[in-house]
Simulated scan of single mutants.
Amino acid sequence: MNSAARFTALFPPAFSALAGMDVRLLRLLDAVLDEVHLARAAARVGLPLPAAASALERCRQLLRDPLLEDGGAQMRLTATAQALREPLRLALAGDANAPMANPSQQLPSQGAVVQRVRILMPDYPAQVVAHALYQELATAAPSLDLEFQTWLGDADATARLERGQTDLVLGSAAPSGQVRGREVLQERCVAVMRRDHPAAHSLTLARWLSYPHLQIACHDTLNRMIDEQIAMQGLRRRIGMVIPNFLMAPALLQGSDLIAVMPMHCVPAATAAHPVAVALACLRPPLPLEAPPLRLLQHRRYAGDADDAAVALVAQVLERIVRQRFDGR
């Protein structure tokens, strides 16, 4: 019986994706679940670490599960991963003596992986995803470095991507020309103000425009959309203060009558670092305004081949983390 037939017989429907997985992926997956450590698993099956990281990411996508999660002092298996261990071993038992194909035929070699990936995104979501991204890649590809560059807006980020000055952009600009991208989060806009703001209980268009607005300069796409919507109605708003990033917003909003409009994921959650966030009100803006989707952008020079393995790996992990952290906000 071949591997696909064994998986069909042994696994419940939830694990049917395993039936179509290459035996090399299955062997790496078995080693990862046994070692609970990617580097040791890679050494065990004879794969370069970056290639093993790429293969593990493919397994995660096919199974729709992270498989490994932060357990504090060390990584631990998810519930899905634990359920896979014994059936996976049984299914692979018939292939134990089969020769291992050369992984370099389909998986990138360690020498092909660049050492640094440059990323551009606003401070939110960067503050939320940076730690998780580093933590996972430190285990999956410890020789890979990350560089978070200074965000100056969607237009600047797209231009730098086209010039080859950055590798990945997480922002609201639309793909065009040599820039390709995919949507990773569809957001909603909210009007944010202190919870006891005079307009917090009845935010009409007239009341919204009667108060000074806080504009976050780094979100140039959203700012342009707001101004266009207001101009279409023959109205104007007063920009009481312009700030460069989202991190400054909570304290300013809490201590004034300023009102800001921002994507929900950019409203800091109430934490020790942002204790005032809990005292902010988030309301529907009083005009038809849809938040621009959050997109992951790359230049078409990154076509997913072996030479771009590091960029592809970071993009895969980053997209998954964004979806996990912000979905439903």
Rank of each mutant, 00 (worst) to 15 (best):
E57D: 15
A17E: 08
L144A: 03
E162H: 07
A270Y: 08
L47A: 06
N245Q: 15
L137H: 06
D196Y: 11
G328I: 05
A249R: 07
M264A: 09
A14M: 08
D34Q: 15
T158H: 03
A91F: 01
A310N: 04
D22P: 05
I230A: 06
L56R: 09
R300Q: 08
Q74A: 15
A96V: 03
Y211H: 14
Q229K: 09
V32G: 13
L62R: 14
R207L: 10
S256N: 06
E136Y: 12
L146T: 02
M75Q: 14
T150G: 00
Q254G: 03
A270S: 15
Q135W: 15
D305M: 01
P66D: 12
I119D: 06
M193R: 06
H274M: 13
A98M: 05
M100S: 10
D227L: 12
R323Y: 02
R58P: 01
H265G: 01
A315W: 02
M225T: 06
E57G: 14
G240T: 05
S176C: 06
A260Q: 01
R284T: 13
V45Q: 03
L56K: 11
M1I: 06
A157D: 03
V36N: 09
C266Y: 03
Q106H: 05
R284E: 08
L137V: 09
A43Q: 09
R180P: 00
L203P: 00
D34S: 15
R58Y: 07
Q254R: 12
A19Q: 15
S172D: 03
T158S: 10
I239K: 12
L283Q: 14
R325S: 08
A52V: 05
S176R: 14
I230S: 08
V114D: 04
R325W: 03
L56S: 12
L258A: 04
M121A: 09
P263S: 07
A52E: 10
A191S: 12
G20S: 13
D227K: 14
S109G: 10
D70T: 11
A251R: 13
R224T: 14
W151E: 06
T80A: 15
L318F: 04
A130V: 06
E57N: 14
V128I: 10
A73H: 11
P122D: 00
L18Q: 02
L287A: 06
Y134C: 04
C59E: 04
